[in-house]
Design a protein around this nucleic acid. Structure first.
Lengths: 233, 233
DNA sequence: CGAGAAATTGAAAAGATTCAACTCTCGTGG
DNA sequence: CCACGAGAGTTGAATCTTTTCAATTTCTCG
């Protein structure tokens, strides 16, 4: 096993506030893993033997209902921790994580969490801060689903994706990984048909440009207007 | 200030695993407060100066959108921690907490969290376990809102309330605090009209019994059937 | 180049909301 | 102690958003 270098993780949010030698100590028990596009990194209900930091790529976190319906919980971007069930006192992963593109991750054995988070309090604090924002995000989503129409929800979802993973191109900001209408539907609680109709309409208005598994926002400002307008109920 | 007794909190989930003398140390910096029905305990956006444990009563946690729409995030029951923004690295409360009935709470200054959670690791672990289940719960709610119809969502919400706060009566299990159709609507992302129609129908079928601000489930089993049936999309 | 996945689009149907009017209940103050 | 008024709940009818069903087209990758 090649020794991992502290520069790999220096500057990533979870490790903010750690010294170089601390980074090395944190890194020592970690292993680096690669996952091909569409391969699962861990499965819902499986025992949470590891927790992860995403070094490169994008990960889709999906929860499946007993009836087999899927909902996309979130996308993980570079530098984020995920699979941290153990930090929240759970022994099993509550969702499945799938590499949306080819990915490189660091994995730590869950059993080390108590020791690591005590020895490096900043690591614990950073992680729990992340948990806090995810909890808020989840509530925000509940609120959106309660109070907004599909059009607003889809607009908000696209804007969030663009903010997290947008990549500038000549025609606007492109979402950095393959994403289907079905995926967007699973993020917003809509059907792929409705999403498709919306995107077609927006394409006509020159707000987005999209093709097979690709979405580019050409006019984020006007998309924001779509996201804000008509909040009632 | 009267000295608080360890027996007040012994056996409550957040303090599981602490010895009697540890309980006393934890309790020392806490103060006990009373809130009348419908009085706010803390307000959304306000600085999170305290975190709380509910000793008696029920608390409604509400988030308000910039447009003024309200959504009920959850109800807190006896023995639960709440207002723990500080444990998640936030300086402001993300929601408003309102006493649903007359309440007694313990309050600790947020500034003590780092010290308390380090000195009493069990306290930290218990709290983060709670956070973990709330995160899961929030995701469950997102999933319900994505995949279920209003009827299933309302049934699920009632069942959850009954499980958390149910009190056996002659006619079934009653929800232990005043709750309006509007409240149920704000928990499920429906309108009070739809909720009212559903409850009327269920009352006709002998599944629930309800009056002004009161709901009793007379036949939980048949309500479960309503909650489960017809999951599609 | 061919095949399967992804996307589009029309038409019909359904669920839930909106609008509106009305009733009931309970607490309060004269 | 009773009447009154506001908050809570009910219910019909019309409307609308979104889904469902179905058929077709487009894309891309092996």
């Amino acid at each position: 096993m090649p020794k991992l270098d502290a520069s790999l993780i220096a500057g990533l949010p979870p490790f903010e506030g750690l010294e170089k030698d601390e980074l090395e100590q944190v890194l020592a028990p970690a292993r680096s893993l690669r996952f091909e596009r569409e391969k699962p990194i861990f499965e819902q209900e499986a025992e949470a033997h590891f927790f992860f930091v995403l070094l490169d790529g994008h990960v889709r976190v999906v929860r499946t209902t007993p009836e087999g319906q899927q909902v996309i919980v979130r996308y993980i971007s570079e530098g984020e921790v995920f699979g941290i069930a153990t930090a929240l006192g759970r022994t099993a992963y509550p969702a499945t994580a799938i590499a949306a593109v080819d990915c490189v991750v660091l994995a730590w054995p869950s059993a080390l969490w108590p020791e690591l988070s005590t020895r490096f309090p900043a690591l614990g604090a950073n992680t729990y801060r992340t948990v806090g924002s995810r909890l808020q995000e989840a509530h925000t989503r509940v609120i959106e689903m309660s109070t907004e129409q599909v059009e607003q929800r889809v607009a908000h979802a696209l804007l969030r994706l663009v903010r997290q993973t947008g990549r500038k191109t000549g025609e606007g900001i492109e979402i950095d990984f393959p994403i289907t209408r079905q995926d967007i539907a699973e993020m917003t609680g809509a059907t792929l048909h409705t999403v498709s109709r919306l995107m077609s309409a927006w394409e006509g208005e020159g707000i987005v440009k999209s093709g097979r598994k690709r979405v580019t926002i050409s006019d984020p400002h006007r998309l924001m207007l779509k996201a804000e307008s008509r909040e009632q109920r």
